[in-house]
Amino acid sequence: MKNQKASSEKVRLYLPSFYIKMSVIIGLIAGLYYVAINQTNASLGRILATFPIFFRMLREDFFPPDFGYLSTALGQLIETFNIALISTTLAAVLAFPLLFFSSATLNRHPLSYGGIRFLLTIIRSIPNIIMVVLMVAVVGLGSVSGILALMIYSAAILIKLTSESVESIDERPIQAIQAMGGNMPQVIRYGVLPQITPIYLSHILYVLEINLKASVVLGFVGAGGIGQLIRRQMSLFRYDRLGLIIFCLFLMISLIDYISQTVRSRLV
């Protein structure tokens, strides 16, 4: 074996192109990071140095929360929950019929199928806040705008999630019902629904969790809920009240998440 050493060229572990590719990737990531840090003034060191300040502020400014503010906060918290609940419910009702048009198993019409799919992708890619601002502009100030914006967005998510489940159902019962002379509504009611209802309910609960978190932002642009209080107290530097709001919000979100996840784990 040793004799071969002289005759052959140096053997590389990797081809040169590998090193070039790696350096380009690493250089790109690092370079972009350098630019981003310069732009935002946020080096890792500065981020780490902030944490002592952050914890001192939590302890001194946000604590103790102003419990006298509870009654005001509670009203807006309820509104935030209402918006999430109502928009999720409307989305579930709206998404249900569309579900069957947007799954390849039941809708073999390529034009309507592709059209709905395309529209859904567009809606999901628009940031939430854009939809809210648009609704407030067009419909007006108030929770209705928030409900509408969240409804459209979450209907798109619901359809996307569930139509994937519709496409992966067991098609053999459908074949049986068709062979026995059942029509399309009967196929959906007895062949499809029993298979997807638990999944659909689970997705509705998941969307409720998302909407609850998303609805915090609505108040900032006048679409109802706790956001408007957060904004007002922020501009007044009333951190004790902010502390209370955030504490209550955290409790509510955790509670709903817990309930939803418990129910979901039993559904599927």
Partner: peptide
């Protein structure tokens, strides 16, 4: 088709019903 019943190899029942 209502006059003709079919029995499938894989039964083709709706499992969750």
């Amino acid at each position: 088709r209502t006059q003709i019943g079919i029995i499938f190899q894989d039964y083709n029942l709706v499992k969750r019903m």
